[in-house]
């Protein structure tokens, strides 16, 4: 491997993988919660929550990045308090995690929400009449039944996080070895004369990672769906 990639390229690939895994893993519990609320609950402000979740999908990524900077930057109205307790996100790899998570969130929520809506509420009612409290109904009936959807949502979010560029470069910039993710690195190589071969190698890596993730998720989803339906 070291022969194929320069240290900078290698770091970009590793950083992207790390950022995407953290972004997916950290946002998954919240994604399930929000998807469940949107699919099954009626509450005040549901449409507002729905809009907020989807905003990163329709806003220019650079605008999302700028909003993140305003909010979580060292002087931002959340960032200044985080700064006091020693957490700095802007221009750090952790900030890239936040940017990727926010950008991938709508895709994750949509996939999980669809799978929750496909679960027959009558099964959940049956569980409740058998004595299961709402939290147990969720853990023993809903969650196993939506597992294929959760896997699909997580893989989609991971792929989106791997490809995130606009919000990330706006929020955490493009510092090699620190915040330079795979897409940022490709962008940088394209800016320098003669950088094309490096850029192309990284594009191949992107394709490889994305394809592997998709094939893996297809396979796992199918296996899980088979187990769940028992057929």
């Amino acid at each position: 491997m070291p022969d194929w990639f320069s240290p900078d390229e290698w770091r970009a690939v590793a950083l992207s993988l790390r950022v995407s895994l953290w972004a997916t893993g950290l946002s998954l519990p919240l994604g399930i919660l929000v998807a469940h609320a949107l699919a099954r609950r009626e509450f005040w402000g549901k449409q507002i929550l729905n809009g907020l979740v989807h905003l990163p999908l329709i806003l220019p990524p650079v605008a999302t990045g700028y909003l993140l900077l305003l909010t979580f930057g060292r002087k931002g109205f959340v960032g200044q308090y985080l700064d006091m307790i020693g957490i700095v996100l802007a221009f750090k790899w952790t900030g890239a995690v936040l940017a990727a998570a926010v950008m991938a969130f709508p895709l994750m929520v949509r996939a999980i929400r669809l799978s929750i809506e496909a679960v027959d509420p009558k099964l959940e009612q049956a569980a409740s009449t058998l004595g299961a409290s709402p939290i147990w109904v969720f853990l023993t009936v809903s969650l196993p039944l939506i597992l294929p959807g959760i896997i699909a949502g997580a893989v989609l979010a991971f792929a989106k996080a791997m490809g995130e560029f606009g919000a990330t470069i706006t929020f955490v910039s493009n510092i090699p070895g620190q915040t330079q993710t795979l897409p940022s690195a490709i962008y940088s190589f394209l800016q320098v004369p003669g950088g094309d071969p490096q850029a192309f190698r990284l594009v191949l890596v992107s394709i490889f990672v994305a394809m592997s993730a998709l094939i893996l998720s297809e396979w796992v989803s199918k296996a899980v769906a088979r187990r769940v339906s028992g057929s």
Partner: peptide
């Protein structure tokens, strides 16, 4: 519903597809 101790049998059986018969019975 969970605290009423009422057994329900509906027109559609509403068995849990991800559990086998024994697990359904013991739910």
């Amino acid at each position: 519903p969970a605290r009423r101790r009422i057994g329900c049998v509906f027109q559609d059986d509403r068995l849990f597809p991800h559990l086998n018969v024994q697990q359904n019975l013991l739910y």
